[in-house]
Amino acid sequence: MQLSAALWRVIAGTTLVVLSFSLLNPVMAVRLEHMGTSATAIGFFAMLPYLSVALLVPFAPRLFKRVGVGHAYRIGLAMELVACLGYLFTASYELWCVLALSAGIGSAAAWNATEALIAHNVPATHRGRLTGLYQTALGAAMAVGPLLPGLVGLGPQGANVLAAMGLVVGLMLSVGTDITKLRASREDAPHMSLWSAWRAHPVLAWAALTGGVFEVGLTSVTTAYGSETGLSLAQATSIAGALGMGSFLLQYPAGWLADHMSTTKLFAGAGVILLLSAVGFALSPHWPSLMWASATCWGAVGGALYTLSMIRVAHDFSNSSAVAGTAAMIACYTLGGSVGPLISGVVLDHWGLSGQAGWLGVLAASLLLALFHMRQGQISQTQG
């Protein structure tokens, strides 16, 4: 598969960013829980990076046009590094929230740049597999990051330092003029707004939002819940590790399947599995291993929903703007990642584990309902 060295370096740098993020966030959640912070406040903190990404991504096409995709990618990584270093020098919840917002702004640039570059530059015959391979690398990073405290014996400060080191290496990989020469859309492509992209593919957008809730919106709150039940730091963060491991295992197979069969069928299968995982989570007090099994499903299937959404974007926006298409999906995915921990925190505080399982089940069912309505609309158009 012939891709430029610059694009491979971007992919590697973004993988390191995700590794650092997945290492640090669960540890921060446990630190907040040890400080006596409520699940709602922890969920609010975990929501902020994703919320700022969701709010800033709509402006990404204009930013890329003004400063270039490569420069925007570097600026984003630098902002994430500054925020990560800031966590080392304060224990203020309020300041942590400001830093989380700053990190999210950086992520909006770096993330959208990477996804748009992949969607625009990968040949159509290999889009599913390359996108799946990229998401597999991110899934591996998500799986390994939360497990490092237990594997290496890191405390909170050590985890923070290691996360910062990963961001430094990622930033170094982005150095070079070849990065700034990469393009993410055709020069003659007409402008497309995010609203137009959403209107063109509403079910795709909802699938991305659902994927965001399950893959990244449950990590911190579920880790804190595990700690609250008496699990050690290593055991509690291993729940997030199971979620990341699920994401690692399924993304390449999902991409390969997308190259060979209907993505609509794959979306429907994902909805059914997520619905069953919510039932499993409700039963976890009786069978504790189901907590890890459900988390594995959330990472695997939630990640697959995002992967499949991006594959469809690469196909459906090939003649227009990959930047607008990927930005629309990222905005929905990060919206899911931002509201997921907040809603989960509130639900856990007021209705406990059964309430959490209930709202996740409703979300999974809503995806199946959206797919059913889309299918009915397609049948009506065909008959008409």
Rank of each mutant, 00 (worst) to 15 (best):
A39V: 15
T40C: 01
T40R: 01
A41I: 11
A41V: 02
I42W: 15
I42D: 09
F45Q: 12
A46P: 08
A46T: 02
M47R: 07
M47H: 08
L48E: 02
L48K: 02
L48H: 04
P49N: 14
P49E: 14
Y50Q: 11
Y50H: 15
Y50E: 14
L51P: 03
L51W: 06
S52W: 10
S52T: 13
S52L: 14
A54Y: 04
A54K: 01
A54F: 11
L55P: 00
L55H: 03
L55W: 07
L55C: 05
L56S: 08
L56Q: 02
V57Y: 00
V57P: 00
V57K: 00
V57H: 00
P58I: 12
P58Y: 15
P58H: 15
P58A: 13
F59H: 11
F59C: 14
F59R: 15
F59Q: 15
F59E: 06
A60Q: 14
A60I: 15
A60C: 09
A60Y: 08
A60E: 10
A60D: 09
A60K: 13
P61Q: 08
R62N: 09
R62C: 06
R62I: 13
L63A: 05
L63K: 03
F64Y: 11
K65T: 15
R66N: 10
R66V: 08
V67M: 09
V67D: 06
V67C: 08
V67F: 15
G68E: 03
G68N: 07
G68H: 08
V69S: 11
V69I: 10
V69H: 08
G70W: 12
G70C: 09
G70Q: 10
H71I: 07
A72R: 11
A72M: 14
A72K: 12
A72G: 08
A72Q: 06
A72I: 01
R74D: 02
I75L: 15
G76D: 01
G76K: 08
G76Q: 05
L77G: 04
L77V: 03
A78Q: 12
A78S: 06
A78R: 05
A78H: 08
M79C: 13
E80F: 10
L81N: 06
V82C: 04
V82R: 00
A83D: 04
C84L: 09
C84D: 05
C84F: 11
C84K: 05
L85H: 07
L85A: 08
L85C: 12
G86W: 02
G86V: 03
G86F: 00
Y87K: 08
Y87C: 04
Y87G: 01
Y87H: 10
Y87L: 07
F89Q: 03
F89G: 12
F89E: 01
T90F: 06
T90Y: 07
T90I: 14
A91K: 11
A91M: 13
S92E: 05
Y93P: 00
E94M: 13
E94H: 15
E94D: 09
E94N: 11
E94T: 04
E94V: 05
E94C: 11
